[in-house]
Each structure stands twice: as structure tokens, then as C-alpha cells.
Design a protein around this nucleic acid. Structure first.
Lengths: 192, 192
DNA sequence: ACCTGAACACCGTTCAAGT
DNA sequence: ACCTGAACACCGTTCAAGT
């Protein structure tokens, strides 16, 4: 608020002429930034799974470019509802439709895909913001190293595997899990 | 910080004797609160899937009781690494082991399960904190209602389905998706 | 040595006053 | 009518001064 107001050579009060509050301003900025999401894969060729991967990856890339905005997606009301966000939702629905996922499941699947991508963006983004501060990893790594073998047998058995692998690979695997899971998980009986 | 300090009849500076910063204090409080997570299902009887569901549900319930702490799990470094958090990780690893999930996948699966549960806690918790403010839903519902049929055919085709269903049911379905997906998604070839 | 009052450098938001 | 300076009510953190 104050930083932006200064950038515009005015006081913070002026922003309240155009936005009800800080959350709404962030929402608007975020939606503007979502133009950078590459939706071309929707109309492209190849396996719909790969194209879904590509779109969600692109969304994550944008979030990671602006960590503070990723945060606002997850924790500020109102939730995003601008045209660019709607484009993204539509794109995901189209791809799931191509994959033969029925309506109810597709609707919930979009939520889940965006939620995981957004949460990943927040985590990685916050980590990238405090570069020197790798004590987050260290604290967990230390805890795993020092874990008592009696109380934490599985933690000990896995050891380094718990922390291994680059974030990108973990995220790709996570997406596969979601897509595979969506395909084989029936919607609750009561609703459809 | 200041509120807690006042509660203890002292100034905020005193807290810095025991904690490096606010994030570390929140981390410590959160770990203390995680005692409320019911880990009994780990040693219980019945399908391991149902018991995994129960543990993650219980974790989510605790997060939703303390929304501001749920937020800190997702966006403050260092990430949780206290004994109660380790108990939770161990519990999930044990259940996945019972389900025949191998080490590398189990490690990543724990990340994914906790991430989805935490993100859900943050979203629902933040929504519950501003009770009158259902404009978040309304904004999205309005956007769906007013969506142009040419630009957003799938959004229009689904309509209300996009917003339907109680959060709890959606979360349960999400967990099923994860568990099913974890079971059939092989770990990347390079690692195992 | 251990604790803390007071100050510092920030926030978002409101409202009376200006043009 | 539209905009904004100044004030309000908060934050987390630091550091010199107290015991």
C-alpha cells in the first residue's frame, strides 16, 4: 500500500478510491500477472496429460516469479475471480474434459490442481525470498538425523530419502499423482 | 508478539530471550498444539486407507481450530520440525508402509498429504475468520454466473457444479485422489 | 547474566480537510 | 465530486539501560 502509493507520488489513502482494501488490490494485480500463464497447450497436440502438466507448470512458474502474490491467492478473501483466472480454470476444465473426466470430478479436480500448485508456489517462493535462511531445511534435516530409532523407526529407515530430490521433480511427481488419482477416483455416490 | 507479551505482563522484547523471532515462536506453539492430533488409528484395525484418512482428517481438524497457526506452517521458515510434527510424519510413513508404498514414494507422499491438508486448513481457516465476508464465494459465483458462453464454454457447462459440495466432502475426495494416485504412480526412474 | 522500557521502522485503514 | 495529508491503531525487532 504505502510503497505503491509512494511509487505513484501520493499518499496511501488515494488507493482506497480504487480498491476497497489491500486484499482486493493484490487480487487485481495477481489477475493481471496471470496473463503470463501459457495456455497454448490447451489447443496443442499430444497427450492431454502432458498438456495439463504444461499448463499447471506454467501457472506455478508465474507464482514463483511473484511469491508475495502467491501468498495472497491462498490466504486472502475474496478468492481470485478475474478474467485471467477464469481463463485458467476454463483451460483446465477443457483438458480434463478431453481426458474424459466427468463434470463433478473435473470441478473438484481443478480446485485440487490449483491448490497444490499454489501451495507449492507459496512454499518455494517463501524459501527463495530468504536466501540465506536454509535453516528451515537444516532444522528438519537435523531432526531427521537425530530422530530416535525407537520412536521414529520409519523416519530413520528412510533418512535422507525424506529430504531428497529437487523441488521441481517432486512437484512433477505430485501432479502425476493427482492426475492418476483423479482418473480412478469416483465422485461420491450421493452427488451424481 | 505484543499480545502475548501483554498476556505475560511484560514487554515484547522479553520474548526474544526465548525465541529468535516470531516465526520460531509460532513454530513452537504449533508443535505444542499438534498433541491434539489423534494418532491412534496407526495401531488400530481396519483398512490402512481408512486409518490414513482418519489421521490426516485429525491433523486438518487441529489446523482449523487455529487458523493463524495453519498459515505459519505454509509460509514461515523454518518449516516445522518439532517432536509432535515428527510423530505425525512417522505415523503417515507407518501407514504408507503398511499399504506397501516404497520408501521414496512414501517420503514424497507425506509431503503431498501434509501440503494438501495444510493448504485446506489455511483456506477454510481464513474463510472462517472473516465470517461476514462471503464475498469471496460471491465474487467467484458471480464470475461463473456472468461467464461468457463463448470464452468459457466448460465453465458455463458446469455452472453450479463448480462451487458445489461442502468443503469436508471435497477434502475427503481429495484425499482419496491422493491415496489412489500414490499407489499407482511410480517413482521417477532415475532415483530408485 | 538476565531481562525489559522505550524507541525504531514499518504496516493497513480512516476521516476531516482540501481542490 | 474526487482526491489526499495527517493521524490512528497496530505490527516485529533492536538496543541501551536497568536489576
Amino acid at each position: 500500500m504505502r510503497r505503491l502509493a509512494e511509487e505513484l507520488d501520493t499518499g496511501p489513502a488515494s488507493l482506497y478510491v480504487y480498491f476497497r482494501n489491500a486484499a482486493e488490490l493484490r487480487s487485481a494485480v495477481l489477475d493481471e500477472l496471470l496473463v503470463e500463464v501459457d495456455l497454448d497447450p490447451v489447443t496443442g497436440e499430444g497427450d492431454w496429460r502432458d498438456r495439463l502438466h504444461a499448463v499447471v507448470d506454467s501457472y506455478l512458474a508465474v507464482l514463483m516469479k511473484y511469491p508475495s502474490l502467491a501468498r495472497s491467492v491462498l490466504l486472502t478473501r475474496p478468492s481470485p475471480s478475474g478474467p485471467r483466472f477464469m481463463d485458467l480454470v476454463e483451460a483446465l476444465l477443457v483438458l480434463l474434459h478431453q481426458g474424459g473426466v466427468d463434470g463433478q470430478r473435473a470441478a473438484w479436480a481443478v480446485d485440487l490442481l490449483l491448490q497444490v500448485a499454489t501451495a507449492t508456489g507459496v512454499e518455494q517462493g517463501t524459501a527463495a525470498e530468504n536466501p540465506g535462511d536454509e535453516r528451515g531445511w537444516d532444522a528438519l534435516a537435523d531432526a531427521v538425523d537425530r530422530a530416535d530409532a525407537i520412536r521414529y523407526p520409519r523416519v530413520r529407515a528412510l533418512g535422507a530419502e525424506l529430504l531428497s530430490g529437487p523441488g521441481e521433480e517432486r512437484f512433477r511427481w505430485g501432479l502425476s499423482v493427482l492426475i492418476n488419482g483423479i482418473l480412478i477416483s469416483p465422485a461420491p455416490a450421493g452427488d451424481v
